[in-house]
Nucleic acid binder design. Structure first.
Lengths: 339, 339
DNA sequence: ATGAAAGCGCTAACAG
DNA sequence: CTGTTAGCGCTTTCAT
């Protein structure tokens, strides 16, 4: 087997083609200022030797790697669960990166050790920029990267301390989305509207709960809250708590479709008819939400666009251009049979 | 914002600590041959300056990156579908890489352009080794990488031309697994056993169909074949074809659980009872296969272990140690109500 | 135990 | 249009 070390370098290609290293470099990088016959000679030498540029060497001088990281602070199990968030973000990011001819480096960090490794990786400039999604708590990494000049962008407003270097982010209008859901329930004459909130260490969890509280504040309905962690199972459990809390509730806004699906199961087991006895509204407009029984009324968010916009912001940042601090995408209610 | 270029280098740390670059390098890399007081001085300088090693520079001299790529020649949509193969592989790979303190770089290549970019990325030595899973057709990339000395490992026997540099692989014993499924059906007295095969440009598709044919060859049952592409939808369609072909069939072996789920739907729509009228056996032992109606009898394969073993092989290869050419993991039948 | 010096392979001024 | 030259930031002998 050919060893790693005896691969041809620019130098050897140059010698073989009878030109200088610089000329070979020009040809390899597509400069047009090289005479056609020489170009041909160089290309032949490259082919014959099987030359491939050493990216580390190139990066050392150009200071760029042409690759971008997407960091998901979750375990692989979670990332590949049926939560529609991850595929959506990854698809949006992939599309846009493809167009920019940049390589996507997907990094999952479900543990402290892997989080550290990613920090070293990014700080070490293995990538030209870093995107974060599904962040928990007040992760200082985005701010740290921004501070040392590594372009960073978040999906969802970063919860990190205000003093931190500002990290641009893309998010959706949680509050307005939730407001329209609650309004829909109110219009239908629902009296006791509960909510199953998302985890309170994530922006999406916090904002959607805030939206619920704010929407109810106007009316004289009291709030009834249970908290889940965006998984289907937690939704089922939370629904049970809600039913214990207030057996007479007649509507529930659930902060994710996955949890809403779990809630549906609990309601079915409890003998409640949906939407006759209890109306249910989810959040995400996941594919499967059309096939639940009954199909879920839900709040649609443009997940793919979040991915795309993150890339746009990041590439701008990487070019040193100024970028808006936040980009808030709209949401809208999709009415189906469950409410 | 701090620009990328004015980050401190070893040189500056050295100056600040009043030592040479070499000494700083030793401390940063944990060499023990540095006097404690000097170590302390260096560490302080590193902290004060916020020094982070430039990985490209390090890579240039050490010829290693401490990161490993996992290439999935599929679109993001497919990778994040509910096919249990991907999460399983990624989990196994992650676990093992975590233990080895290597960074996983996950690369999806659903298009020709992205496949090319990955080729450049790997050939350019951005990573120390490359693992491939879910390969289609005769992708020459693994062989090419192996030939230039880049460690490469596949999940599933590579279909590429025999003359190619040998790429070690991890696979499962498809044929034996399928044989036990067919035997189970035969033992139950099934007379007309059909199959829904996987795509014939993938090893798993080819081998499982071969297993089916081989198993039937012994008996005097004729084979009835329809081909899908491992998606749920294709399973539903293939089942319809099968029913048209031979309305009297009383059993079907399906090459993946996802397709089996689709087949179940078609059978239900066609008014066939499972397993009374038609027995169904799937492949993969996906989580959801326990919750289908009826629960699927299926063939379990140790997917996570495939990921782990790929990493083991790769790390060995990267150390220049010899490795076995193939590692075949066992499968076994999990009997549930569908057969 | 520490420092000096020689590259790793490449790009980018700058001359010519 | 092409070659010369000077590094990019780091590790690693080899001396001391």
């Amino acid at each position: 087997m050919t060893s790693a070390r005896d691969r041809p370098t620019l130098e050897e290609v140059a010698r073989r083609a009878g030109v200088s290293r610089a000329t070979v470099s020009r040809v390899v990088n597509g400069s047009t200022t090289v005479a056609p016959p020489i170009q041909e000679a160089v290309r032949r030498a490259v082919r014959e030797l099987g030359y491939v540029p050493n990216l580390a060497a190139r990066t050392l001088v150009t200071q760029r790697t042409d690759s971008i990281a997407l960091v998901l602070p979750e375990t692989a199990t979670r990332v590949f669960s049926d939560d529609p968030l991850f595929p959506g973000i990854v698809r949006g990011v992939s599309q846009e990166l493809e167009a920019a001819d940049r390589q996507l480096v997907l990094m999952m960090a479900g543990s402290a050790a892997s989080h550290d490794r990613i920090e070293r990786y990014a700080m070490g400039r293995h990538v030209d920029g870093v995107m974060f999604a599904s962040m928990h708590g007040m992760d200082p990494l985005p701010g740290t990267l921004a501070r040392i000049g590594m372009p960073a962008v978040c999906s969802g407003r970063p919860l990190a301390a205000g003093a931190a270097a500002a990290v641009p982010y893309v998010d959706i209008d949680h509050v307005t989305g939730v407001a329209s859901a609650i309004q829909h329930l109110l219009d239908a004459g629902r009296q006791r509207i509960a909510t199953i909130a998302g985890p309170q260490d994530m922006v999406a969890g916090i904002e959607r709960l805030a939206g619920y509280r704010q929407a109810l504040r106007g009316s004289r309905h009291r709030s009834i809250v249970a908290v889940g962690d965006f998984t289907r199972e937690s939704g089922a459990i939370a629904m049970r708590q809600l039913l214990d809390d207030d057996p007479a509730l007649d509507a529930v806004f659930v902060a994710s479709d996955l949890m809403a699906d779990g809630a549906l199961r609990t309601l079915r087991e409890a003998g409640r008819r949906v939407p006759d006895d209890v109306a249910v509204i989810g959040f995400d407009d996941a594919e499967f939400a059309r096939y639940t029984d009954p199909p879920l009324t839900t709040i649609r968010q443009p997940i793919i666009d979040i991915g795309r916009e993150m890339v746009r912001l990041l590439l701008k940042l990487a070019e040193g251009k100024p970028v808006e601090e936040a980009l808030i995408l709209p949401t809208h209610l999709v009415v189906r049979d469950s409410a």
